[in-house]
Design a protein around this nucleic acid. Structure first.
Length: 466
RNA sequence: GGCUGCGUAGCAAAAUGGUUAUGCAGUGGCCUGCAAAGCCAUCUACAGCGGUUCGAUUCCGCUCGCAGCCUCCA
């Protein structure tokens, strides 16, 4: 029985889909004017894991994640670069997809773009104006009249009187109420624009998600996700727009993931303390990054540091080591571990506990290796199958363990696999003639290059890279 | 100022009203020529103060500390 923490009620609730067996999930994606950073990676990995687990649980899932490909920052950046905005967005959409593939994030079922949803956006704004929830401001922009929507503040737990608009930002005098937000923004000269009943312009940020989610999933759907910082005002505004326009309940379960932090501070573009996914992948393997993200609960803060990434790499190595040398075939899974794993995931996607089950599994696997090959094969199959729900442990164990760390690939100073095999043979010869000093010096030489040798009881030697 | 959330052993990170989290690190063993890997055992906890309770790390209150939102941000 899957339980999901619902931001709207601030409680874990039993998940019941609107339509039995089917789930619609919408996640707010990226604004594509720059490379994805680790915070974006967390959203991608977390909701990819949710999607994988939903499907594993037997739901027919429609997973939609939008792309914001028109907004102020995009226009600004394109102008800086002296390029048309579509050239900029196409480049960063491709970069985003590269990052996702690296992190084993499966593509969402639909990836709507704001620039391709203009008709739906206009229709929704029209409906809002018709219902008296939106108005054209003194500067021609269309605004949402926040006080006209009774439920405003329900998601973020704020009430209008407490919100001190203008405290941190200049109040826009074109609005009737400082908290009103823009639905349609009139274009200045040389800005990208679409025609609308209110003149040439572009959509405000919040309206695109209301329009795209509703178009892809219907007026009322199951899950809406995104980063915690979107809770207010973005998601609050989405509710006001969608429920205002359709008159129907919008979303049943709101999911928000926690931030990635650096030195106890939110990683963000405005603070400038972010690492892009590709920077991180220069130094750490993608699977290690994914494992790191899933090693804490999705709602907890995740403190980014090299040390923590290294620890994640060591932990993942333990799992891969347990699978090494085993032939893994499809076979019925060990029920005990499967149930424990599912109980963890059913509890609001508790990947930290799910991973601990994988370690318990690895321990038993290591124990049965010598004594019970049949049991071992079953445990190995179970480990790999459960791990696949987290998107980890799918590489060949030996390849993983022998693989170079990211960024070392073309370094001439490291030994090739042939060099290593030759040195291992030399050392075995030395061992056979009991030349321990020579054997040890070869081992030390390899160790200095990050190659660790492991002698098996049967006289063979395997190796891995640290 | 308003509203959220969090504070767990050396580090990271979960659960839980009474019983082993888990990973890394430490200590002692087994294994090994010695190692590594693996296995076994073991030491470090629940911010502080009150309350509820037979019993609280777990529930409630207060205090302190940290983070986030109230502007764009995942």
């Amino acid at each position: 029985m899957l339980k999901i923490y619902n931001t709207l009620t601030r409680e874990k609730e039993l998940f019941t889909p609107r339509v039995p067996g089917k789930v619609g999930m919408y996640v707010c994606g990226m604004t594509v004017y720059d490379y994805c950073h680790v915070g974006h990676a967390r959203v991608m990995v977390v909701f990819d894991t949710v999607a994988r687990y939903m499907r594993h649980s037997g739901y027919e899932l429609t997973y939609v994640r939008n792309i914001t490909d028109i907004d102020d920052k995009i226009i600004q950046r394109a102008n800086q670069n002296g390029e048309v905005f579509t050239a900029l967005t196409e480049r960063f959409i491709e970069a985003m997809h590269e990052d996702e593939r690296a992190l084993a994030v499966l593509p969402p079922d639909r990836e709507p773009k704001a620039s391709e949803a203009i008709d739906d956006i206009i229709a929704m704004i029209d409906a809002l104006i018709a219902k008296g929830l939106a108005y054209v401001g003194s500067n021609g922009d269309v605004f949402y009249a926040v006080t006209k929507f009774a439920g405003y503040g329900q998601l973020s737990g704020k009430n209008l009187d407490d919100l001190q608009a203008g405290e941190r930002v200049d109040v826009d005098l074109a609005k009737r109420n400082p908290l009103d937000f823009v639905l349609w923004k009139m274009a200045k000269a040389n800005e990208p624009a679409w025609s609308s009943p209110w003149g040439m312009g572009r959509p405000g940020w919040h309206i695109e998600c209301s329009a795209m989610s509703t178009c892809c999933l219907g007026n009322h759907f199951d899950i809406h996700g995104g980063g915690m910082d979107l809770q207010f005002p973005h998601h609050e505004n989405e509710i006001a727009q969608s429920e205002g326009a359709t008159g129907e309940h919008y979303v049943n379960y709101w999911m928000h993931n926690g931030f990635v932090r650096i030195n106890e501070e939110k990683m963000s573009k405005s603070l400038g303390n972010f690492f892009t996914v590709r920077e991180v992948l220069q130094r750490f393997r993608p699977e290690v990054v994914r494992f790191f993200i899933l090693s804490s609960h999705y709602r907890s803060p995740l403190n980014y540091s090299d040390e923590h990434l290294n620890e994640a790499g060591v932990a993942l190595t333990r799992l891969y080591t347990s699978l090494r040398g085993l032939e893994i075939k499809d076979e019925p899974l060990d029920e005990n571990y499967k149930v424990r794993f599912e109980q963890a995931m059913d509890d609001d996607f508790n990947t930290a506990v799910a991973i601990s089950v994988l370690f318990d599994l690895a321990r038993e696997l290591n124990k049965t290796k010598e004594s019970d090959p049949t049991k071992t094969r079953q445990l190995a199959a179970t480990l790999k199958a459960l791990a696949s729900l987290l998107g980890i442990l799918q590489e060949d164990p030996d390849s993983f363990l022998k693989g170079l760390a990211a960024g070392e690939a073309s370094d001439d100073s490291v030994f090739s696999e042939d060099d290593i095999e030759q040195l291992i043979q030399d050392r075995l010869n030395a061992k056979q003639s009991k030349q321990w000093a020579l054997a040890d010096s070869i081992r030390d030489e390899l160790k200095a290059q990050g190659v660790v040798l492991e002698d098996a009881p049967n006289g063979t030697t395997s190796w891995r890279r640290e």
